[in-house]
């Protein structure tokens, strides 16, 4: 099963370190086992049709088994590529311009909007607050002069309010769609 190097089909695809693949395989192995176990516990309804081909757990169990087998294949391949080899831990070089802080902030804001605000506030207000905060936080610079900062805050508020109003008008009046 061992291969010298992972192959990538597309030029923009770079392979992951084998250890990451090994951890991924472990997760999918657990998911597959859980699917098979949950399917096994489902009733078969044999008494109704005197056969088990339509048992509710049959097809998901089949998928679970395939996922387990594929996870074992992925794990074996990762080990073959050196996932367990000491001193051969290939790590990905950090990509220029990528920021996990920005990712965490965006995720937190999106979750706060979709889980915290939608359904609790009027939709236009929730939208306005979300868009305003998103722009404000991502465009915030420590060394910004106050005049420029005030302009940015005002423009964020304007875009937020405008988006809230536009979304409500366009979707409820034009597309006749109900909003959350």
């Amino acid at each position: 099963m061992s291969e010298p190097e992972a192959q990538s089909v597309l030029p923009h695809e770079a392979p992951l370190p084998p250890r990451v693949d090994l951890v991924t395989a472990a997760v999918f192995f657990a998911v597959g086992i859980a699917i098979v176990y949950a399917s096994w516990r489902m009733p078969t309804f044999y008494e109704q049709l005197q056969q088990t081909y339509t048992a509710p757990g049959l097809v998901p169990a089949l998928y679970g088994i395939v996922i387990v087998l594929l996870a074992i294949w992925l794990a074996a391949r990762a080990i073959g590529r050196g996932a367990l080899r000491r001193g051969d831990e290939r790590t990905r070089a950090p990509r220029e311009g990528y920021s996990n802080l920005r990712l965490a902030l965006a995720t937190a804001l999106c979750l706060a909007f979709a889980v915290g605000m939608v359904g609790r506030l009027t939709f236009w207000l929730a939208t306005a607050i979300f868009v305003f905060l998103f722009i404000l936080l991502f465009e915030w610079r420590k060394d910004q002069p106050w005049r420029e900062r005030a302009i940015r805050i005002a423009s964020a508020a304007l875009i937020g309010g405008g988006t809230g109003a536009a979304v409500v008008l366009v979707f409820t009046r034009l597309f006749l769609v109900r909003l959350p």
């Binding site: 999106c110 979709a114 939608v118 939208t127 868009v131 988006t163 769609v177």
Partner: peptide, 29 residues
């Protein structure tokens, strides 16, 4: 920074619009 929050709002409306279940927003997330 100005485009993506608007896109996310549209995604939320889009996920909700057909069945009008807040559950679908959680599915989307």
């Amino acid at each position: 920074e100005r485009l993506m929050p608007i896109i996310f709002v549209l995604c939320t409306v889009g996920a909700f619009a057909i069945t009008q279940r807040v559950f679908d927003i959680y599915v989307m997330l």
